[in-house]
Design a protein around this nucleic acid. Structure first.
Lengths: 191, 191
DNA sequence: TTTTTATATCAACAATTGTTTATGTTTGAA
DNA sequence: TTCAAACATAAACAATTGTTGATATAAAAA
């Protein structure tokens, strides 16, 4: 069993650099410099620059989908399911903040056909959440809000805290974060 | 009084192109092609490519600050002030969706010292909101939540709907949008 | 030992980029 | 009519980019 893998090192360093400077602004020479070898050597580990981005985006997307699917196929009630989804968002963002940062900021840099493929995954994820909200509304657990607006509000409420884990700031306690966000979304902040 | 201004046309076309392709992916030749003139002619209207981005970002930022300052210095109660802030976000996003899109997606492309300057404006805006939340909590109008988390949840809840106005989609009715978002944030969506 | 496999460098490529310089034309005001 | 401002092009620049090919060495497997 390997203790360290040079390709994995290369990808992790790429990930951090792309997070710091953005995908377009990060050059292959930048990455190679951090790895202390020549640019050309990078191509012993990857086929192209875009392959790096695609790997992370589709990999992390699959994690989100997997978590969502597990929750939806459980026997929890809609509000409990929503709690679970919030929880899995926080778990993924706190353990893989750089990967999530790429999902939030760099997906526009995908090239066709990967771009369209990725959009479809995103839409599919949103639809899954939409179906849960609809179910909750029909069961009288959630208020009868516009599904599209509700979906967007919930997802954007979950799209910011990766940053706290990507920086060296004093991290937000994930447990407390979950408690507060659930409370916010469920009951609002009016006293 | 001028009916049409060529520089303004140039900037608007730049704005749309940057929104479509991203700042880095948009070349000066792309913009010139849309204007049906040569690249070099662009430099009769602007000093540099970055000047375009800076103009829109700082201009729209000033609008947000202005709206925020007017609200804060009014005699409304904290919850009414928050409603006003939400309202002004929707107004700006629905009338200037491309400018807001640039604020959301392209601020990372600013160069120093504009970059740091912009971050300061952003932080200052967040602090203004934070002070309002604190005031509301102390007055017992808002629940005693973590200010940092509350700030982030509120602002990210307001950071998605520009997209509906930037595309040709059937637009979301701004009045109804405001009603739903206020209801969400104030009372949550648990029945 | 022999032979892959992993790791590395050097040199060069074709294309693209933002920007400048020099120069020309059109237009509207004086 | 004169003249300056606005509007336009052609040509070139220096730098940067992702990627390839040829080649070399070190490590691991056979």
């Amino acid at each position: 069993m390997k203790v360290s893998n040079k390709k994995e090192d290369f990808l992790q360093e790429s990930l951090k650099l792309i997070h710091e400077k953005g995908f377009k602004a990060t050059t292959m020479r930048d990455i190679a410099e951090r790895m202390n070898f020549d640019v050309s050597n990078s191509y012993n580990y990857i086929k192209s620059k875009h392959e790096i981005l695609e790997g992370f985006l589709f990999g992390t997307s699959a994690e989100f989908h997997s978590a969502m699917d597990n929750v939806l196929s459980s026997s929890y009630s809609p509000d409990e399911k929503l709690k679970q989804i919030i929880s899995s968002h926080i778990t993924i963002a706190s353990t893989k903040p750089f990967e999530v940062a790429l999902m939030v900021n760099e997906w526009r840099n995908l090239k066709e056909p990967k771009y369209t493929e990725y959009i479809k995954l995103r839409d599919s994820y949103e639809e899954k959440l939409g179906s849960l909200l609809l179910e909750g509304i029909e069961m009288g657990v959630f208020k009868a809000f516009d599904i599209t607006i509700a979906k967007s509000v919930i997802l954007s409420s979950l799209r910011w805290f990766y940053d706290s884990y990507a920086t060296n700031n004093p991290n937000i306690n994930p447990i407390e974060l979950e408690r507060q966000i659930v409370s916010f979304l469920f009951k609002g902040f009016l006293e």
